[in-house]
Computed example of a mutant assay.
Amino acid sequence: MSVARILVSREDDDQAGYEYLRAVPGLEIVEYDPNSLNLSESQRSVELLMPPYRGSHRPLDLIELLPNLRMVQLLSAGVDEWRPRVPKHVMVASARGAHAGPVSEWALSAILAQLRQWPALVRFQDQHTWAHRKFDAETLAGMRVLIVGAGSIGMAIARKLDAFGAESTLVASSARDGVHGPDELPQLVAGHAIVVVTTPLTDATIGLVDAKFLAAMDDGALLVNAGRGQVVDTDALVLELQSGRLRAALDVTDPEPLPADHPIWDCAGAIVSPHAARTVPGTNRLCYQVAAREIATFLSGGTPSNAAYL
């Protein structure tokens, strides 16, 4: 059997996945430093590249230094940073599916935190105030939730919401049984107390949640973004938050990282987490399990299920 060689980061989060890669027939691990462009001749000769688990954009410039490259296997759910930089003849595959559990858990926690007024309660606690009857909590039971992005993450969120008695409406890039297509989205926004964004970043989704979309949301509705910051028009969202008409829970922002002087920090109706929805113990192993499966499929001559195309 011929052997294919793959560049894999030597950082701790990545070494946790070596066992899965070593189990792939015909694959040899070649370690590299994702912070450096200095590659040995042996490293330059590899056929596969895996960006690191954290800060996956760091080795983007290595693409031009790998003449034999045939595949880039990502550990992220999205491919938007990499696909435009990778030559058309090189396969790009994601780790879609590995993030569904952690990110859906974050989405549910963000929704419940907002509905049960935990940000306000923490501020009361900081002031040593017993806030009985000083805030208005809501229940998730019976609420209608619009999920924009019906991939593995969006579907996992819908399952969790169902357990709380909420009703989910799903929208994807194409319609299928139980899932609406993008052309229906403008008519679906109103009537939902919560809108959850999990769609990947594509030409069709950049700025999708714009001023018109936000204006169509019900008064008091909650926007949850667990997808990509560029899907939401930040300036338009700030205006809605400052007016107090909408609320938001954001794991991703545009710009990102969010500057210290950005107005979203001071919006009482917003909670922000630092692109950390997947960051819980064990997610890196889940990503490597999916990645190893994709690589094995590729090396056997098949098409990885998470392959991304231009």
Rank of each mutant, 00 (worst) to 15 (best):
S40Q: 01
L246T: 01
G302L: 11
A113G: 11
Q117V: 12
A215F: 00
D218K: 11
Y32G: 11
L299V: 05
G97C: 13
A166Y: 04
M143G: 07
A93C: 13
E81S: 03
H262C: 04
S76D: 14
A16W: 01
V103N: 02
L62G: 08
I157G: 00
V252N: 05
L241H: 00
S2L: 05
S42I: 05
A190E: 14
W130Y: 07
P25D: 14
R58I: 07
M71L: 14
L310F: 09
S36L: 07
S2T: 11
P274C: 04
Q289R: 13
G149L: 00
Y18W: 12
D219V: 13
D162G: 13
F298E: 07
S174Y: 06
V90E: 09
Q114K: 12
P102N: 08
L21Q: 01
A216Q: 07
P52F: 05
L75P: 02
A141N: 13
L222P: 06
W106L: 06
P255G: 12
S76C: 11
V72M: 04
F298H: 09
A248W: 00
D203N: 14
R176M: 05
N225Q: 10
S174R: 15
Y309V: 15
Q117G: 12
C267L: 02
T202N: 01
L223A: 08
P263S: 10
A23I: 03
D14Y: 01
A216M: 00
A166G: 10
Q230A: 15
S168F: 00
P84Q: 05
L222C: 07
H128P: 00
E11W: 05
V272N: 00
K160Y: 08
D162T: 13
G165F: 04
W106A: 04
N35Y: 10
M217D: 04
M143E: 13
R285S: 12
Y288K: 01
R116H: 14
V103G: 06
T279E: 04
D254H: 13
Y309A: 15
P25H: 10
S45A: 15
S173C: 02
S94L: 08
V86M: 12
G165L: 08
M1G: 14
